[in-house]
Nucleic acid binder design. Structure first.
Lengths: 204, 204
DNA sequence: CCTACCGATCGGTAGG
DNA sequence: CCTACCGATCGGTAGG
């Protein structure tokens, strides 16, 4: 509530807020307090504005959420796609898919938290699109494990449960990871990729 | 919005709502839409009441959340405590601690979802208490892995990361588990216990 | 258990 | 970028 906090905007003079600034402020607040737990007044205050001024840089609160969620899901999907083009070996595919997924959740903590907490609050038809992208990731991730099992590279009973477990342990990185902590994002991702291979009983 | 839905209260005559009924309705709605995404009007409507009538059976919306979250955390803690009394072998401790933790998240999906989504919205000092209970679970769960590593029963590089991964994969069960699905709660818990042992490189 | 009502706050618009 | 303002809804109370 004190006045001296948040001396954020560049030096002193030039405000000139951009849509990116609004999205950034919303991202931090949505991640911390949830979409419904955040008011546009708080978003505006973080930028040292009044609420109506936000509408010069966004169209609505729900559009802010939609941008954050859909962009993040598209990013995750294309990172996954890229991995699959680098190798056809299920062991390497699983290692790399887990690595990039865990890395994403360490490097984009806030986005991941918002996707996980607030995707459900998207209006249709965006909610349907979001769920479809997630299901696609789930299905294709599981397929790697199924392929590896078929090829005899993995010793795993249920590719479905293994896939859930691996993906969700990556997702949870967003909940505890901190920059400057004992592990770098890459170290965490590397470790999680290793844990994924153990989990599916990859031959070693 | 139609009238014919929700013919819930017993046969026709005897309403007589209890605090348990209110909590049950709130639990379902909080789990589905989040604490801030749920209004007391919706809770009341699920019980075919008007909002003010709820106050005969509860003290406030935040007390409803506090009851759900704190009771669940206490339950999880005592289930964990009980497990530790049944064996001193780290392998068996980890297997059983993972089993009961995963089982809890399959059998109490709604409670788990609320704890994970909305604990942050508890007023102090409850938030502090909740976080302390969680940290205790985290610390003691990790201790099992550290003990097993020291005893040479586990081949694991980072007990901390392994502990995070195992606990969070259990937590996520609440997000996909369905009664009547292909796996029973016990089958899932059993599978997850096995995955935990693989993850820490338990000798087999 | 209800109706009637409270002040506060919500997302958003008008108009400059 | 602001002030002024909109209708809607929020959690909660009074009083019966």
């Amino acid at each position: 509530m004190s006045e001296e906090a948040h001396q954020d905007r560049r030096t002193v003079a030039g405000p000139s807020i951009t849509p990116g600034d609004v999205r950034e402020a919303a991202l931090t607040l949505f991640a911390e307090r949830g979409y419904h737990g955040t008011s546009l007044k708080q978003v505006a205050a973080a930028l040292r504005l009044r609420t109506p001024s936000l509408y010069n840089h966004m169209s609505s609160k729900s559009a802010l959420l939609a941008d954050i969620v859909m962009d993040t899901l598209h990013e995750v999907r294309s990172e996954f796609d890229e991995v699959l083009t680098t190798t056809t070996d299920p062991v390497e595919q699983l290692r790399r898919a887990t690595f990039v997924y865990a890395l994403h959740h360490a490097e984009h903590r806030r986005e991941a938290l918002v996707v996980n907490q607030d995707t459900q609050h998207l209006p249709e038809p965006l909610l349907g699109s979001a769920q479809e992208i997630r299901r696609g990731h789930e299905r294709r991730f599981r397929q790697i494990i199924t392929d590896g099992k078929t090829a005899g590279a993995f010793d795993v009973e249920s590719p479905k449960l293994a896939s859930f477990a691996i993906r969700e342990m990556c997702v949870s990185v967003a909940r505890w990871f901190r920059d400057g902590g004992p592990y770098s994002a890459e170290q965490v991702a590397d470790h999680y990729a290793d844990q994924a291979l153990r989990l599916v009983g990859a031959h070693h």
